[in-house]
Design a protein around this nucleic acid. Structure first.
Lengths: 230, 230
DNA sequence: CGTATTCTTGACTTATATCAATGTCGGTGG
DNA sequence: CCACCGACATTGATATAAGTCAAGAATACG
């Protein structure tokens, strides 16, 4: 499936590229539909391509050898993902699964180097992108080291609202299906504990829960909980 | 203090650069001695420079607003650090403290872009370096989410031995002063728990402890503990 | 030497996991 | 269209890993 250059132009990462450069990129791109629940690639697969999420939402997970799963990150529209070749890794470190029907654009891994040479800005942007992810990872490490579960969950939920919030009658809703288990796997706890916490919040009127759904009614309250320096 | 190009040449990051390129880099570099316990820069300082550790060992720490400290990483000789400008951050996200007397080379942050343009390989290398750090961060997140403290400590100690191990009469010794508190701050636990764990290991003959010192006598035993899929 | 870190060890507390049971929703197929 | 099944969620009871509190010992350092 072909790809229009205007689609890329709207992504910040490509905003500064010339028409010619964009055309060279789209020439090698192929678009792919990923139905909900399907994986773009699996942990350990050899990295044949790198991707851009055009539409939808992905969860990147890793499983430990004893079968425990964690969610490494959520991929939002406009994010590059799976550009593991840039990190000189032969395989994907995690599995990218579509949380909703999604649309991705794929490029062969080999093209990465030539793209970077063709457009040094791309390299700069890539560094910045990975740098931000590193920052996020450190934030998460800091939270897991120093904060108790309830505050970690508050932080995670606020981040999701920030990245994927959508207005709704009663508040801001997380705009893709997310289970208690998902939240547990993002915060290093169990679905039971998450469920208890959300129940408590719900009876405070801070959130509204539901099957694979979460609406935040009182973000400031969560903020206070998350920030609160006891 | 000036810098010789042969010093840089020995660092993998610069190995592939031409004499001319290296000279352009050394021209703008200045070397600086950091005595044990002093900081190269502090968290929140504006990022005036980026650095290369030539000799010694640094601990990069962050403090949370309520005063808890964590060790983000250990900087080893040959590592670039503080190149936060590449990530388009105006300030340093952590404090870099010398664990032993150290020697660093500093470049003004503004030079980063011109260096990258001068040598695209540097950009590629930088991406790879940050990518590795991101990987390490994810590993740590995974460990903190799924493993109990003793295994996390085992992993951390093995990593330190790997990166900073030095032969010693009784085994491999961590080649810089490291306290129980440091290990606790690297693994998200308390110095008490670390102390108990190391005491237990010592009575098994796996390690030999001491004030700010740690020698691993039986790495395979730790490996087994760390890997063991119960 | 005395003073200050760093480390050890014990007793107690608590947050959170684990175990177990039940409830609820939503899609599938009869 | 309804009934059933499987996935998801809730909630209680119990167990336990690891944190907190407290005191003292060992080591380094000025």
């Amino acid at each position: 499936m072909a790809l229009d250059r205007s689609v890329l132009r709207s992504i910040p990462l490509f905003a500064a590229m010339s028409d010619a450069q964009l055309d060279r990129m789209t020439a090698q791109a192929s678009a792919r539909r990923i139905p909900q629940g399907e994986a773009v690639f699996e942990q350990g697969d050899s990295a044949k391509a790198f991707y851009l999420l055009l539409h939808g939402r992905l969860k990147v997970t890793q499983v430990t050898r004893d079968g425990q799963q964690i969610i490494v990150r959520v991929v939002h529209p406009g994010d590059l993902f799976g550009f593991t070749r840039a990190l000189s890794r032969p395989d994907y470190p995690g599995t990218a699964t579509a949380a909703v029907d999604s649309l991705v654009s794929a490029w062969p891994s080999e093209s990465w180097d030539s793209f970077v040479e063709d457009n040094p800005h791309l390299a700069m942007n890539a560094i910045r992108t990975i740098g931000q992810r590193l920052d996020e990872a450190h934030t998460r490490i800091r939270e897991m080291s120093t904060e108790e579960v309830e505050r970690r969950v508050a932080h995670a939920v606020l981040r999701l609202i920030d990245q994927a919030g959508r207005r709704d009658e009663t508040g801001m809703r997380i705009d893709f299906p997310i289970s208690r288990r998902d939240i547990a796997e993002m915060t290093g706890t169990t679905l039971h504990t998450v469920s208890r916490i959300l129940s408590a919040w719900e009876s405070n009127g801070w959130v509204e829960g539901g099957r694979q759904k979460l609406v935040v009614c009182d973000a400031p309250a969560l903020q206070r909980l998350a920030e609160n320096v006891k």
